[in-house]
Design a protein around this nucleic acid. Structure first.
Lengths: 174, 174
DNA sequence: TATTGTTATACTCTATAACTATA
DNA sequence: TATAGTTATAGAGTATAACAATA
């Protein structure tokens, strides 16, 4: 997009119908705020999903799992991955299976606890992930980069506040 | 939650591992901002999905479709719904089929264009949706309500700006 | 020819739950 | 008993594509 793709349906940059357009005048501010945030996230997320699929034949969860691993050269336990990615253990097994089959990650047995293994990126996995991550970051920049400095800061601060509010609400999932 | 459910794993309200925790110091601000926004959205969205499922045996897309319809008593064409909800036509057909089977919406043939029909809420659908919507709004308030007035306003403004930036990037999907 | 809606299909992601092997 | 990971299953959600009817 920003780097090359012309918008197919340029249209007006305002008033595109979306989830928020269902909000009624009498709806409370929190609801409108949520619909607006959801719309933004969905726009960006579906763009990223689509790009990952068409340009790298991968998916967001697979990308996320590899992203988690990149920072921890020694690898992570599946239960750790499960916590970070906020999905259940079985799902981590499935995604890991796929990535392992393609030689992007490997399971490494550890002596200290014979039940668990460490998952880590292979050399090939690192190489490929770095390329994907660079593209990914460009896509994100293309979508967020137009924000004013003030909005960017405000957004970051407010979302930080929100994350703290929303997290403790969550029940454990594993 | 806020209204009754105690957090199962209270834990510290800070430093809970999530998607953002993969961000490296050298990562650009836009990427961190995106990860933070994604985490917030996922937290809230999965809470809403889970509530809709356990308390009303429904799903977010079904809820969204009914929400779109509530404001338009005359009904909407499926292609309109498809645009607003940003999913393909076939998916709208599927969701509509389910809702129609449960008597919550109905297809109404129109004379002007015999290819299309209008989808609208039935009386039962309106009644049930109003209840769900009220709960939904309470859940959202419980999660966003703790934000300071300033953050709420900043967030709303900044997301409005972002929505305009992100929308024109999108290619048409139908 | 283009559009509306339907159908069929395939795939990813997810939660749940039962299971094993360790701890 | 509790934990780490696996397996099986079922369902949600989505995209794609072929299709019929109509515009």
């Amino acid at each position: 997009m920003s780097h090359s793709m012309p918008p197919i349906a340029p249209g007006p940059a305002h008033n595109v119908p979306d989830l928020e357009s269902r909000a009624a005048p009498e709806d409370h501010q929190d609801l409108r705020l949520w619909l607006r945030m959801l719309t933004c996230c969905n726009l960006i997320e579906s763009e990223l999903r689509s790009r990952l699929r068409t340009e790298y034949e991968t998916t967001l969860p697979r990308f996320d799992l590899m992203a988690q691993l990149l920072r921890v050269p020694g690898g992570m336990k599946m239960s750790e991955l499960s916590r970070h990615m906020m999905v259940t253990n079985g799902n981590i097994t499935g995604i890991t299976d796929q990535l392992e089959k393609e030689g992007l990650v490997e399971r490494v047995k550890v002596a200290s606890d014979r039940r668990s293994s460490l998952i880590r990126l292979t050399t090939k996995g690192k190489r490929i992930f770095r390329k994907m991550a660079q593209s990914h970051e460009e896509w994100v920049r293309a979508m967020l980069g137009g924000l004013s400095e003030k909005s960017r800061n405000n957004l970051f601060e407010a979302l930080g506040e929100l994350k703290l509010l929303a997290q403790p609400q969550l029940s454990g999932r594993n």
